[in-house]
């Protein structure tokens, strides 16, 4: 911890807090998809900024880990930068923006496009861990519903989408069933990312700071997105390719480029896009350094 802050324990949390979180994590891995309550601590940043994910990361991170933090796929947004800096200062660990180099990845709302390996752990930041919360506000009831696998309301919610709109319109935080048992919120990742959770080689950990819940999906575990036989689960698709790297297999963000209705679609995963461009892939659009000057009418 040469360049770290003095006066703090390694990775900010005290050892007793880490043991409490670690015991919760081990039970979470042993009961895939079940939300384990934990005594979440106040963290030096507000709820909604990844306090759950940070506590999980702090309990797991080792001095030799290489940490990557992404926010909606990007390594360079405020949330990602500040969390990366938090751990480089309090734990003195190496950080990276490259998915391939990371051993620990904390994420807000995306799974990297590059498949994760057994040598990696991914930590999700979770705002609302309870997938049944919008149908049943009482925690005492949702606990019973999970215990009894009373999941009819979730199917009804998806069915109502089909009845009203002709298709399931849930595009993020799309509910999944883990190992054929519990229904789980995958956190607000786009449903495009749901298939990546199934049989993933890496351990997946989830931390919800405000709601004080930890849950997990062990590696090589079945994760199915809920659907119907006649309305099978589908991921989002785009007509466009990434304007920068030409990728047709990644999750694309829509960027408004001017006030004439100009727009671009580019990879949400900045590392994936950068790697492809470094390898010589190019998109259809020659992105100008600056928007073209507006001509007077």
């Amino acid at each position: 911890m040469s360049d770290g802050l003095s006066g703090y324990n390694f990775a900010y949390l005290d050892e007793q807090t880490k043991r409490m979180i670690r015991r919760a994590l081990l039970k979470a891995v042993a009961i895939p998809g079940y939300q384990v309550p934990f005594a979440g601590r106040e963290m030096p940043l507000p709820y909604g900024w990844g306090t759950g994910g940070i506590q999980v990361t702090a309990a797991v991170i080792a001095p030799g880990d290489v940490l990557k933090v992404i926010d909606q796929g990007a390594d360079d947004t405020t949330n990602a930068v500040s969390i990366r800096r938090f751990f480089s200062r309090t734990a003195g660990v190496a950080t990276t923006t490259r998915t391939a180099d990371a051993t620990l990845i904390q994420t807000r709302h995306r799974i990297p496009e590059r498949p994760l390996t057994e040598a990696q752990i991914i930590v999700y930041q979770v705002p609302i861990p309870e997938p049944l919360r919008w149908m049943e506000p009482r925690e005492s009831e949702t606990k019973k519903m999970h215990a009894l696998l009373e999941y009819g309301v979730m199917q009804v919610k998806l069915y109502e989408d089909i009845a009203h709109l002709g298709r399931i319109t849930t595009s993020y935080d799309y509910p999944v069933r883990v190992n054929g048992h519990y229904i789980m919120s995958p956190s607000p990742i786009p449903r495009f990312d749901n298939p990546k959770m199934n049989q993933m080689a890496a351990l997946q950990l989830f931390g919800a700071g405000r709601e004080k819940r930890i849950y997990a999906v062990p590696p090589y575990t079945r994760v199915e997105s809920l659907d119907f036989d006649d309305y099978p689960f589908e991921i989002q698709r785009w007509d466009q390719h990434c304007a920068l790297c030409g990728a047709s297999d990644s999750y694309l963000d829509e960027m408004v480029t001017d006030d004439h209705g100009g727009r671009l679609f580019i990879c949400s995963d900045t590392d994936y896009c950068g790697e492809r461009r470094a390898a010589g892939h190019r998109g259809d659009t020659d992105l100008p350094a600056n928007p073209a000057p507006r001509t007077a009418p």
Binding site: F10, K18, R19, R22, L25, V29, V60, A62, P63, L203
Partner: peptide
């Protein structure tokens, strides 16, 4: 070394329950 030793043992147990 309490912090790194406890972490190393925990990570081994976490890997054990994961695989």
């Amino acid at each position: 070394n309490p912090a790194p030793d406890a972490n190393a043992v925990f990570r081994t147990v976490l890997t054990g329950f994961s695989y």
